[in-house]
Design a protein around this nucleic acid. Structure first.
Lengths: 123, 123
DNA sequence: CGGAATCCCGGCTGATACTG
DNA sequence: CAGTATCAGCCGGGATTCCG
């Protein structure tokens, strides 16, 4: 018993519900968006930073590291001056691209089919 | 200026990157899992509560409400004693099912193809 | 350029108690 | 049964500073 003493009955849940695994990986405010940008092409760190307006370098680093740990993203360091680091999708990450595409298409259809009630919460 | 004074350049971002929309909707610790359970069949409140070990009723309610606001989930109240409330997917929610399925399948493949490094962080 | 190290902060999450 | 209300806390995001 490491840390399963509260609110976490991990095993059975993941057995029963396979999306749990996926949920764990793409949870994180920027991960889906990062993966999407990497699905287009390999990107450098600052390139990603520019593509994600509002994210700080610290956070970007963390999200990328976590994606690395989950073997979704590959980090290639070129020993140069100034340094260059390129991020790309691993094979596992690439296998996720169809889902990213679906999510993109769905997002577009979603915007068309409904004006978000959330925006008008004050009604 | 409501609350967009920091870290939120919403418009352009969503233009450029369609997954942002989707990200916003499925963000939330339990939403994907809730949607998945509802994709199987209509469920009652306590049924969902049992299916999601670890979630509290308060949180479950909130996540469901948010999914309702986003028009993903329909809430049907039966005027009975004791009360009965059933949750199901709206048409928009149903249009998301393929993605849920993909995520489920992907999650299974993922588990096979890699032993998560995260679990052994202490190495 | 691409981070690492810190600190801070808010919001979501979660527990508990109460209600119709 | 299906919530609401309230409060606590934690974690993850964010800003800033420093480094090779």
């Amino acid at each position: 018993m490491a840390r399963s003493w509260f609110s976490e009955p991990p095993e059975d849940q993941k057995e029963v519900c396979p999306v749990t695994e996926t949920q764990d990986i793409i949870a994180g405010k920027w991960k889906i968006i990062i993966l999407w940008h990497l699905s287009i092409q390999t990107r450098r760190f600052n390139e990603l930073h520019r593509l994600l307006p509002g994210i700080s370098k610290g956070i970007l680093t963390r999200q990328l590291r976590e994606l690395e740990e989950d073997q979704m993203v590959h980090r290639e360091v070129y020993k140069e001056v100034p340094p260059r680091v390129e991020y790309s999708l691993t094979p596992i990450g690439q296998s996720f691209i169809p889902i990213l595409d679906s999510m993109g298409e769905w997002g577009i259809k979603y915007k068309k089919s409904c004006k978000k009630a959330k925006a008008y919460t004050n009604l």
